[in-house]
Design a protein around this nucleic acid. Structure first.
Length: 382
DNA sequence: TCTGGGGTCCTAGGACCC
DNA sequence: TCTGGGGTCCTAGGACCC
């Protein structure tokens, strides 16, 4: 049996636990601090009751409730809490997996009293952090994850052999992890509506109609294996940043300053993780160009901000348009390997020494104590 | 006020190698 | 004589998740 723990309105609950003034109030956590120009990252249950939910643009949320409380996301607080919960769960001595920042999976084998165990976990979490979790138990991770959502918040759902079919029958297929918008459309056209409809199809049928995704779904639905522990390696496969401007601009020096800033941010994170990257991915969005994406692999891996920026500019030249209007952009580095010194060329050595000095200063005196001058232009208004 | 930002995995076509 | 077939890597784009 797998036990899946899903924290309730995680970010919002943490903010309410930390700040008593917010308790019992409709609250949203936005992904950035411009409260009218962001989307809802998490909504408290008081806000959910008013029809507000994550993914919604914040202006729409405020339209539903002008008195909504707003807090900008504080990632480090949530990561800290998540790691503390993980530590607490470790004490149960079961095989344990991080599924995401607010989800954890435990292989509880054939534990005789899953209900009591789930209750115990929930009360321990509440005692320590004053936030609630919902728990699902089932024969595999996909069904356990599904179960955890069926009785939110602060609920427990146990899918047994006896109730399996009836639970699946009353649950729409799109509640399954992996069944998004386009998969839902395809299966609806096939006349499949519920999780049970999917569950009762065989592997060939699902593969024929949904490709690899269908096959994965079949395997995950029917598996009785423990969750794969292969994702124990926590090495990231890519590191990126993106930013959306309040409105589109075609001012090149402004766009370049932003690209440089994003490149520096990405480079800094690569250096923190001791990684270098061969492939640079550039994403641009604008009214004329729509989404422009391109990536390029270079022979020399790097974690130098200026180098990443230069490569991004090279990729941008492919766009073949003089100076398009740009609304949003992103830089992502992939093909990551552990960086190995020494650097080969003099220019690299010199720049390596520079970035090392910058990192030292910023680590000691705080982020952005020292930064490339060009990026200061990003602070100008459009 | 009119949709963020961080990711992973998959697909299909093309280049290239033996 | 004049081109089979297997495999890998790269790229752009899409689907999906939190």
């Amino acid at each position: 049996m797998i036990l899946h723990i899903d924290m309730d309105a995680f970010f919002a609950s943490i903010e309410q636990a930390v700040n008593p003034r917010l308790k019992g109030k409709p609250l949203i956590v936005g992904s950035r601090d411009n409260k009218m120009h962001t989307v809802v990252c998490a909504a408290s249950y008081e806000a959910k009751a008013l029809g507000i939910d994550s993914g919604m643009p914040s202006f729409a949320a405020f339209k539903l409730c002008p008195k909504l409380e707003f807090v900008a996301a504080d990632q480090s607080k949530y990561i800290w809490t998540s790691e503390e919960i993980f530590r607490l769960l470790k004490d149960y001595q079961f095989q344990l997996n991080y599924a995401s920042i607010d989800e954890f999976q435990m292989d509880i084998k054939s534990h005789p009293q899953p209900q009591e165990l789930a209750n115990d976990i929930k009360s321990k979490i509440y005692k320590n952090f004053k936030i609630t979790a919902s728990i699902g138990v089932a024969k595999n991770w996909l069904l356990a994850k599904l179960a955890s959502k069926l009785n939110k918040p602060n609920g427990i759902t146990i899918i047994t052999e006896e109730n399996l079919l009836s639970v699946l029958k009353k649950t729409p297929a799109e509640r399954l992890c992996g069944v998004g918008k386009s998969t839902t459309k395809i299966i609806h056209n096939l006349g499949l509506k519920t999780c049970l409809d999917l569950y009762q199809k065989d592997a060939d049928f699902l593969e024929k109609n949904l490709g690899q995704n269908g096959l994965n779904l079949y395997v995950s639905l029917h598996s009785t294996d423990s969750f794969e522990t292969d994702n124990q390696e926590t090495k990231p496969k890519s590191v990126g940043h993106s930013y959306t401007l309040p409105r589109a601009t075609k001012t090149p020096r402004f766009i370049q300053a932003w690209l440089r800033l994003l490149a520096e941010m990405v480079a800094q994170r690569l250096r923190q993780k001791n990684l270098i990257s061969e492939t640079i991915f550039l994403w641009l969005n604008g009214p004329e160009i729509g989404n422009f994406t391109a990536q390029k692999t270079f022979t020399q891996a790097t974690n130098d901000g200026f180098e990443i920026y230069s490569r991004a500019l090279k990729i941008m030249a492919q766009i073949g348009q003089e100076s398009p209007k740009i609304r949003a952009f992103g830089i992502t580095c992939s093909k990551l390997t552990t960086s190995s010194y020494p650097l080969l060329f003099n220019e690299q050595k010199r720049r390596g020494a520079l970035t090392k000095a910058m990192d030292t200063i910023n680590n000691r005196h705080g982020e952005n104590t020292i930064f490339p001058a060009i990026t200061i232009i990003t602070k100008e208004n459009l």
